[in-house]
Design a protein around this nucleic acid. Structure first.
Lengths: 197, 197
DNA sequence: GTTTGGTTTAACCTTTTGGTTAATAAAGGT
DNA sequence: ACCTTTATTAACCAAAAGGTTAAACCAAAC
C-alpha cells in the first residue's frame, strides 16, 4: 500500500470517528504510522485531505441510488431492490451516513457545491414514475417526495443514529446487525403495504 | 435575561451549529455579547458548558417520549399522537436531533452515562404492549423493536438530515416546513397501514 | 561510485484556542 | 459615605494544533 493510500485510509478512519473539527492531523499521522509532515507532502492541508475523504465517501453513496432509481423496473421493484442493496452497502460502511450528514450540517457551503456536481443523487425520474403509477391506480395517492423521504428514513436513519438506537433499544453490536439484516427485506414489505392500493 | 442565560443561549446556538469540537469559546462569547472570561466565571470550562447545553437538549427530547409511550392508549393512538407531537416539537427545535446524534457519535462515553440516568427514553412498556396487540390479532406479526425503529426513523430522520434532504429533493425552507407539517398526520397513517391486519 | 530525483523525518514556527489573572466597575448592606 | 461582595473586563499565558523547513535517506540512472 502506497504512503498516500495509508494516509487516506487513516484520514478516513479518524475523520469518520471524530468529524472534521474533532480530527487531529497528528492522530491521522499516527494512525497511518508516518510522520506528520508527510500529510502535507501528499495533501496540501487538512481541508484538502478532508475533501478527498468526503468526496470518496459521497461518491460511493450517490451513484448506487441513481443506478437503481433510473432503471426500468416498477416502483415496488425499485423500493425492494434499493432498500436491500443500500442496507447491504451501509452494513459494510456503517459510519458513512452519520459522517456525511454531520459534515453537511457543519459545512453546508462546501457540501452544497458537491450536490450541484455531476453524479449527485437525482430522484427526478423516480418521482415522475411514482406519479404515473398513482394515476394508473397502482399506488395510493401520496406525495412522491414524502414517499422518497420515507424510504430514505427507514434505510438510513438506523445507521446514522446507531449509537442512540443501540442505547435506547438495548442492542449489542450483534443484535443490531441482525436487525439490520432483517430490515434488508422487511422494510420494503412495510413500505409497499402502506402505499399499495 | 441574566448573563448566565445569555451565555447558555449563545452556547446552545453555537454548539448546535458547529458541534462540540467545532465550537469556539470566543464565538460563544461574541454571540452572547460579553467577555470571554465571563464564560469561565459562570461555567467552569468548555466541557461543562457543553454538558449543560446537551443535558437540556436531551431532557427536552426524552420525557415526551415516555409520557406518550407509557400512557393508557392503544398502539395506533400512541403512534398517531407521538408522531404528531414529536414533529411539532422538533419543528420548533430543528437542530436538536442532529445535534444529539452527532455528539452521541463523537462522545459515546459521556453520552452513554446519560442514557443510564433517570428520565431516559424507556420503550419497554410500549414494546410489551405491541406484543400483546400482535397476539390479540390487531397488528400483523412484526418485531416490536423494528416497529419502534420505523416510527423513530420516519419522524426524526428528515430533521437530522435536513440539509441533505433539502439539497436532494430541491426544497426551500418553506417547502421543507410544509412537508413536515403534512408528515405530522401522514406518517402515522402510513405506519398504521403497513401493520394493521 | 556518484549524482539525481523523489521520499521521509526531526525540529521548528505561527496561529489558534481554552483558560487565568489582576484590576475595575457595579450593587448592596450598614 | 464606606465597606464588602458580586459582576465584568482587558490583558496575558500555556498548551495544542496546523503547517513549514532543511537536512537525511534511498532508490534508480549514469
Amino acid at each position: 500500500m502506497s504512503t498516500e493510500e495509508k494516509i487516506f485510509n487513516a484520514a478516513r478512519i479518524v475523520f469518520q470517528k471524530k468529524g472534521f473539527a474533532g480530527a487531529r492531523m497528528q492522530e491521522i499521522a499516527d494512525e497511518a504510522g508516518i510522520n506528520k509532515a508527510m500529510l502535507h507532502y501528499c495533501f496540501k492541508n487538512k481541508q484538502q485531505l478532508f475533501e478527498a475523504v468526503f468526496m470518496k465517501a459521497f461518491s460511493q453513496l450517490a451513484p448506487q441510488i441513481n443506478t437503481i432509481f433510473n432503471s426500468e423496473k416498477s416502483v415496488f421493484e425499485k423500493i425492494t431492490q434499493f432498500t436491500h442493496d443500500y442496507i447491504s452497502f451501509v452494513i459494510e460502511n456503517p459510519f458513512l451516513p452519520q459522517f456525511v450528514i454531520q459534515e453537511m450540517n457543519n459545512n453546508p457551503e462546501f457540501v452544497m457545491s458537491i450536490l450541484t456536481h455531476a453524479n449527485r443523487p437525482n430522484p427526478d425520474l423516480f418521482i415522475s414514475q411514482i406519479e404515473k403509477e398513482i394515476e394508473a391506480g397502482i399506488i395510493k395517492t401520496i406525495k412522491p417526495k414524502q414517499l422518497l423521504l420515507n424510504i430514505f428514513s427507514m434505510t438510513v436513519f438506523p445507521f446514522a443514529a446507531q449509537i442512540m438506537v443501540k442505547g435506547i433499544l438495548h442492542l449489542s453490536d450483534l443484535e443490531f446487525n441482525q436487525m439490520m439484516e432483517e430490515r434488508k427485506t422487511s422494510i420494503a414489505q412495510e413500505i409497499i403495504n402502506s402505499i399499495k392500493k
